[in-house]
Amino acid sequence: MNRPFIHGINFEERLRTKLEALGCRIYYDQTYDHQYKLDFIVNGFRDVARLPEHIGIQMTANKDDVAKQREFLHVQKKSFVVPKAIYLEADPAADIEQGAATLVYAALLALVFNREYRHRRIVGLRLTRNFSFEFFDLEENIRHLQGLERLPKTSRMIPTSDEPLVGKIINFNKEKGYGFIACESRPNNVFFHIRNEIAEEVLAHIETAEEESTGWRQLDIPVTFREKSVVRFGEDKPVAFDIKLASAVLCA
């Protein structure tokens, strides 16, 4: 049974302790935490004579905390206190004692010794509950989250009939918070986000679907929805909202 991460100091201490047991040499100073937003610094690995670059780590169990990501990126761009800095976003359902810390250790090794990441100084690292990790571009992720924050302010209704559109939710990614609806009257699948007024019965159907290793759930849920246009990266994009479960008669 998974034991969830404990937030705060205990969360950080547990991960530090496990990483040290795995072979990381770690430096910790509260000054670095307050001034440079680094919970600790990895400055060596067991059996590695010299670590090419020290790695500063900021940890959080809060998903998509755009304010914290912005602050971390801003401080790291100004400070240059470490050659590499990681913003570690851990799924609260992951288990440090049962393998999650080992994944962090593997990610640190990849960041240091994989040529693909040699010139990336500030990196996002996402740790998922299904024992996998991925690096992500922190600046790009912040732009994406800021775009979602602006959706209500920049949206406008597309001229359509008063009748709702009919379609089927074909997939959804819970971690990313969005999915797509196939609709015969639209040339492309319509994007929707979990925040976009989705009825409880629709969410219940999504939750019962099996999640693939990629994080996506393949679905076939008949729904009705309305559509509006939002400005994203300078372009109008259709977005579904007011999504409700369609009746059998309506979908026939």
Score class of each variant (00 low, 15 high):
R115C: 02
S155I: 00
V123T: 14
E235I: 02
F180P: 07
Y36T: 02
S132E: 08
E149R: 15
I57F: 00
K237Q: 14
D242K: 11
M59C: 15
D65I: 13
A110N: 14
S161G: 11
P164Q: 07
L19P: 12
F233W: 09
K63M: 13
N62L: 06
V82M: 09
F135M: 07
A85F: 04
E97L: 15
E116T: 10
S213Y: 03
R195Q: 13
L245M: 14
V42H: 02
K168D: 10
R25Q: 02
V223I: 12
H193K: 10
V48R: 13
L165N: 04
V239S: 00
G99R: 12
E184K: 15
A67F: 05
G215I: 00
D220I: 00
N130Y: 08
L111E: 10
L109I: 07
Q35V: 02
E97N: 15
L245W: 12
I96C: 10
Y87G: 05
H144K: 11
L103R: 07
D242V: 01
V190L: 14
R217M: 15
G167V: 05
R25M: 00
E163T: 12
R129P: 01
E116V: 07
I194S: 12
F192D: 11
F45S: 09
V42Q: 02
N2P: 15
P92N: 05
A106I: 07
A85I: 04
D65S: 15
R16D: 03
K68Y: 05
D236R: 13
F233Q: 13
R217G: 01
A94T: 15
Y36H: 13
D33V: 04
L15W: 03
T17M: 13
Y117C: 03
